[in-house]
Design a protein around this nucleic acid. Structure first.
Lengths: 169, 169
DNA sequence: ATTTTATGTCAGCCTTGTTGACATTCCAAG
DNA sequence: CTTGGAATGTCAACAAGGCTGACATAAAAT
């Protein structure tokens, strides 16, 4: 049974995309995402946090000193929603909010030591799962994985994904 | 700059997994999943439904005549949570719930004509995005994509993913 | 001086997860 | 046959975390 076959016709590699194959891909995405979030979720539960807190910690760590507005664009939620999460993280001493130096309206966000500790625990759990999957699938598969995921993003997001740079300060 | 490089040493293809590469993979997963759900979400909004309704419709369509318990295992939520979604779908005439013939405690679930119509609209939107991503990335990438996703699932789920069969009745 | 921008906050709504209590049905042990 | 436990599904109530709208404040821009 040839599933997901490719064929080379006239030098070009063609892909036969049946609805059945696409459905398999859709379900793979759904189930894999569950696995992807399962390990951090368990850690978060112990701290009384949810996925929203994880996402905030991740991107604050990634883009050190980022502003609230910046974070909103990345996370794709409303400021009210982000604010609720951010407030608890600040109250709990995981995130520090400093008034901007150039523009005093802005708040620059940083992880505290405690924040870094939790972020590391979360991301290490997630990296471990990703590492195992990468190893099992092999380098060629990993390259393909990344290509398909990137093609699946919205255009605006793809720019964020590609262009995000650390800006320490 | 060699990012995510592979090298062939002694005939074996090795993969260098830096934390940075893994983090890129993690973010790709996050952003791609947003894109993955964006199109159906827009359709659902028009009908006053959410993602949970989409998932239910998908798996009822896929496993025609499935029971509530079966669906629970696939969706990974509590029966109470599923029940709420199911109730509205039944009230709205998208899903039919028939008392089981062998075991009258069970309910066998089927899509009505209207249910099929909405399911098709949702899955076609999602397939279209998947199709475009597959085309952009190419067949080799698609194979890798599926391999990595499968390796990322929890073991129990992987069995569901691989082994799900239609059982019409 | 006025307007715009960045941020924070309050109130209230919705979806979708959770647990607890309960009804129905089946099946097996007595 | 009856009865008690297990399986299945429903109803009620609560929490997290999305959302919108309204409003306050401070600072920057005009």
């Amino acid at each position: 049974m040839a599933e997901g076959g490719t064929s080379t016709i006239g030098g070009e590699n063609l892909l036969f995309l049946t609805d059945e194959q696409l459905r398999k891909g859709i379900e793979a995405m759904f189930f894999a995402y569950r696995g992807f979030t399962a390990d951090p979720d368990r850690i978060l539960e112990d701290h009384g946090y949810g996925r929203a807190h994880h996402r905030a910690l991740h991107f604050i760590n990634r883009t050190n000193g980022t502003t609230v507005n910046n974070l909103l664009a990345l996370l794709g939620v409303t400021k009210q929603s982000l604010n609720r999460v951010l407030r608890t993280l600040i109250e709990d001493g995981l995130v520090e909010s400093r008034i901007g130096r150039r523009d005093r309206r802005e708040r620059n966000l940083y992880l505290t030591e405690a924040g870094h500790t939790l972020e590391r625990a979360l991301s290490e759990a997630q990296r471990e799962r990703m590492r195992a999957a990468y190893r099992a699938a092999g380098p060629q598969a990993v390259a393909g994985f990344r290509q398909v995921l990137e093609a699946m993003m919205d255009d605006e997001i793809r720019r964020h994904y590609a262009g995000l740079k650390d800006r320490r300060g």
